[in-house]
Every structure is written in structure tokens, then in C-alpha cells.
Amino acid sequence: MPHKIISLISVGRHPQSGRARRSDQDGRAVELGLKLSGSQLEVVHAGDSEEPVLRQYAGMGLAEITILEQDQSMDAVASLSTYLASRDADIVLTGVRSESGESSGMVPYILAEALGWPLVARVADIVEIKDGTAEVLLALPRGQRRAATVKLPFIATIDSAAQEARQSAYGPGLRANMVAQSGANELDELRANWSEAPAKPRPKRLKMVKAKTAADRFKAATAKPAGGSGKVMKNESTEEKAQAIFDLLIEEKVIR
């Protein structure tokens, strides 16, 4: 029996231009969904059905996208949890964090709590689904992986280490069917009281010098910053050169 898989998508934001785009992690969630269930995959978005970015997702080869129509200021969680509860899905895939809005990354957690499902975070891949459990690979920093199993049904947030979303093709995207139904209109009241402003650049923390003596303070203020041209070894023996590299690798803890 094929498993019912739903990918949730949102409107992303390009890090350089700030333009709306297919969100990176959501795109990967769709990709993983396509891998697991092919054309059976259901893709759901809570928001505006006229949003052009949805066509970019559809260009991955989706015949249709379900849209829970609602205003931007409304709470997406309410619509989604009602919808998911009615769909009897096995796996719900989302990105870890949305690229626009609050991007708290809380949506999957609240959905999991509401549905009473387990949640696995930062999934790199779902290797196998068998006997009501799925074997998942979790992404850890620096390319490391952890294996785990989880009982169906569950929610998985997809890490940026998962398989990259396939190219979005213009034609199929244009022709895909946008199935809109009205979502729950629950105003996000808490958020209405927040004030939002364009991000201020964060000051980089300077190397804090709590100097005990005048000499230390003087040194901290005048010393040449670390860096500049490095050490060059030219006439030393091969052993010494290798040793110098080895010492650096040990110091940087890349060799343990």
C-alpha cells in the first residue's frame, strides 16, 4: 500500500535579493515527497492561491497544489491542523524554518502536538518505510548523519542537507491546477502586537580585552591583528615541513 505523504510549502525569500522564491527546504521536502510517493504526493500551502511562487513548486512536476486560502496575517497553524487531521496522512514533510514571516520554525512542532504525532527534526533522508515505521537519516552539522526509526504517522522537518529540489520547469508550472479551499481565519493576535522592522546589522563582537594593566591595554590597542601573511617554509627539510603542517592540523583539531 503506498503511503500517503503530504508536503507543506511556503513562500520563500531569496537571501540576496529578498525576492519571493521557492523556499529551499520546502523544495527539498517536496523532492523527498516525490521520491517517496511520486505523483501520489499531496502538496499543501496555507495562504494566497494567486501567489506566483506556487508555480515554481508546481514546475517540479506537480499536477496540483492544494491551497488553504487565508490572509497573510492569519495563523497558518489553525488551517493546517484542521486540514491534516482530515487527511489521514502517514508522513507530513515541511522545511525546518520558513524563509519569510516569523520563521520561528514552530509550525511543525505545534502541528505535531495538535495531532499527537511524533516529530523528527532535520531529516536528511527517509531511507525506508516498513511495517509502520520509517528509517530516517538525521542531518548533523558538518555533514555527519544519525540514523533513527520513527513510527508512522509522523511529521518530519527537512534539513538543507536533504536531496536538492529538482529544477522547476516553466511549462508544467504554468499548467498545474491550483485547488483552493477556504482555510480557517484565526487572527494571529499575539503577533499583531509585535513591531517589525528591517533587520539591523548585528555588531560583530570584538575580541574583548579585559586588560589588567596599562601595558596589556596598550598592547591590545596597538597589536597588529592576527592574520596577514602566513609563515612560509622554504629551505627546511621535508620532515620539518610536514611536521609544521601536522602541528597545525592537530592544533585545529581536524586530526584526532
Binding site: 529544477q167 522547476s168 520547469a169 516553466y170 511549462g171
Partner: peptide, 13 residues
């Protein structure tokens, strides 16, 4: 290939 299949190779996409 690009606009219907989305199969621009390598760095194309």
C-alpha cells in the same frame, strides 16, 4: 528540455 522537463544539466538549473 528546460521549460517542459526541467532538465538543464549540471549548474544550469
Amino acid at each position: 528540455l528546460t521549460m517542459e522537463k526541467g532538465e538543464t544539466p549540471n549548474k544550469g538549473s
